[in-house]
Amino acid sequence: MNRMKRMSRRAWLGGAAALAASAGAGALIGPIRAQTHAAPRSYRLEAVEIAARTWCVYGAQEDLSRANGGAIANAAFIQTPDGVVVVDTGPSKRYGEALAALIAEQLPGKRILRVFNTHHHPDHVFGNQAFPREALAAPQAVIEAMTAQSEALAANMYRILGDWMRGTVPTPPGRALNASREEIGGRVFTLTEMKGHTACDLVVRDEETGLVFAGDLAFLDRAPTTPNADLPAWRASLAALRRMERDSLLPGHGPVDPQGASLDQTLDWLDWLDGTLREAVARGLTMNEAMAAPIPARFAALGVARTEFERSVVHLRARMEEEILNGIPPDRL
């Protein structure tokens, strides 16, 4: 008989009440309470010109936090003859509004014709709400992922960012992209669906400047994130990006990259990550042991490398166990 298994829900609820009533519980619940009372703040966004009539609002090379309001991903906008094209909208309604205000200030009187979402991750698309509904567009698979996961992703963002998220309602685009080439406001864009960072990653190429918006397929000077990653597909997409004719490239996180260093760095990280995690499974290391692996010196300058590596152990472990551990037939009973 296992006495430990016999915890009823009633006993648990009773215990939880005891916790709330305990004066000593402060040490456990204190930090959470402190976070919920963070003072409201506003984003101070700055547009940096990265190509002809093209501006980027850079994200901090950090994790989502109350210090940065979740503004960790790049957002960009392009002036076309007839209006404005936006690529990604940031982490919250408040950010989206600040971005729209910045665009209005930079390009007074210009209408927003199109807002592309590169993929479904909330640090890139939770500002959608601040833009005209009919301008929002993404591949069908991105729209579906946003729709299916919006509730869970929003809950997570509210928990991490608190008041920064006030009023944010996930707003998936109503328009599914199906053309590979589109003229918007007199400027031509090439659209390519890739995958690997997520199940669907949109790459936008501006035909006028040769600038490629790579979304989170490319990271520069910050460790890549892998919650929905498929490493072989991601590598194939990096190879495709390398072949793509381009004058410059904007990673989803990190500075504009005329040389394509972000493609090398992202591939280098993914190769190391893959090899390290596979070796840990093959050697029988526990996940906690795997998380303690040293990070090579060449990645020392990458933002949040240790945190992202530890997160990746959680994201990728199960799939690697399925691949590396041997299938064992059942014994006859």
Partner: peptide, 28 residues
Amino acid sequence: GGGCSAPAAAHGQKDWMSTLGEARALAG
């Protein structure tokens, strides 16, 4: 939870009953 997180996989796949108890192992 962390940023950029996906929700946890749904509890129980469609065909989970047919693979119940299926084992993998490695020793070294």
